[in-house]
Design a protein around this nucleic acid. Structure first.
Lengths: 201, 201
DNA sequence: CCGACTTGCGTCATCGTTGTCGCAAGTTAT
DNA sequence: ATAACTTGCGACAACGATGACGCAAGTCGG
């Protein structure tokens, strides 16, 4: 389990309290600003964070470095959420519900960083996401084995639908949403669909 | 029904044959390049189109103008596809299938322009999309009335799921896909979901 | 309290992108 | 054939964003 106080910068020495706060403030501002406009400048980010532009550059040498740090930070949170919720022992339905809720909690508010992380060039980040993807597929296979998913359903398609629904819910979101309600909505829709039981044609 | 030869530039006089070809080539290149990297430069687009950078600027004064033209072009195709497929007379299931297939045919290959169009500032484009949205909701309401959709389903949520699935399918796509198969997959998943008929818990 | 650290500010150099222009060569339509 | 149009090329100016400084003032930790 990744703690809340994990190191923010990778290579550096431990930061002083105020500096660490600044870094976190910058990352949060970056997420906010960049999710609204991915081409936002360092100046806009600095302004949103309430710090001078030079301070941002002090903490993140290049723009790339800032983006990478943001991605790494979000990916850490994401992996922690998944690892904490997934289990090969509990019933697939329970796990699906739990992991969905926990992922939503992280992904709402870190949409930009998470979206960017998905196709990252960084091998470390790519590995984490491939890992999560594998865990997801295993969960779905287990769901299929226990009869939760229909036997004829393609696992990859199931995962793509699942990801798509999660992505949809976490886009353009109001401040505080009822995660549990959204979770129910997603899992319910994924399993039952929106149509009546009687098939057409 | 919008023809293939409709005017590409709005305000301008009719273009000579070679110029119109160039404009189309540039738009296609822009879609390709920008879908891979939304921050791509005019030079990269020009290179992909096989023309000089100055030629791009000759046809589209500013970067904005190019983006707008791209968006307008895609929106036109999109609206035509929807208008041609939707109907208040035919059974909702049939319409849903037909409109999905036609939209997919347009949206595959014009993903960047379409995604950008969704939240456009241009009132004309926004109106078209609001129009399509309204048509979609009406279709779903009719589907609900005829028992295709469950009565308890929220129409807005249904539309969001539908859009999300279409978006998912049209992202990162190989050259030639079987549109009919994808359409079946989408509609089927939307209505039936992926789970077994017997509910859990 | 004192040393180390951090921040804001102003400044500077650099770079890439954008957008414009004129000219020569090639293409299109009549 | 000829006049109008289009394109490529090279060059240019302007602009914004990036990134690096040093310095003075403020803050943190022992």
């Amino acid at each position: 389990m990744t703690t809340q106080h994990e190191r923010l910068l990778i290579g550096g020495k431990p930061l002083r309290a105020d500096a660490e706060r600044t870094v976190r403030t910058i990352l949060e501002a970056a997420e906010r600003v960049l999710s609204a406009d991915p081409t936002a400048t360092m100046e806009q980010i600095a302004e949103a964070a309430g710090v001078a532009r030079t301070t941002v550059h002090r903490r993140f040498t290049t723009r790339e470095a800032l983006l990478d740090a943001l991605t790494r930070w979000a990916t850490g949170q994401f992996a922690a959420a998944v690892d904490g919720a997934i289990s090969d022992a509990a019933p697939p339905a329970v796990v699906l519900y739990r992991v969905t809720a926990d992922v939503l909690r992280v992904k709402i508010g870190w949409g930009f960083a998470m979206t960017r992380a998905a196709g990252s060039a960084d091998p470390e980040i790519a590995r984490v996401h491939a890992d999560v993807l594998e865990k997801c597929d295993r969960l779905f296979r287990r769901a299929q084995a226990t009869g939760l998913l229909r036997p004829d359903v393609d696992i990859e398609w199931a995962r793509r639908c699942y990801y798509a629904l999660i992505h949809e819910v976490t886009q353009g979101h109001s401040p505080e949403s009822d995660v549990d309600a959204l979770t129910t909505l997603i899992v319910d829709t994924l399993l039952r669909g929106l149509g009546t039981d009687s098939r057409f044609a």
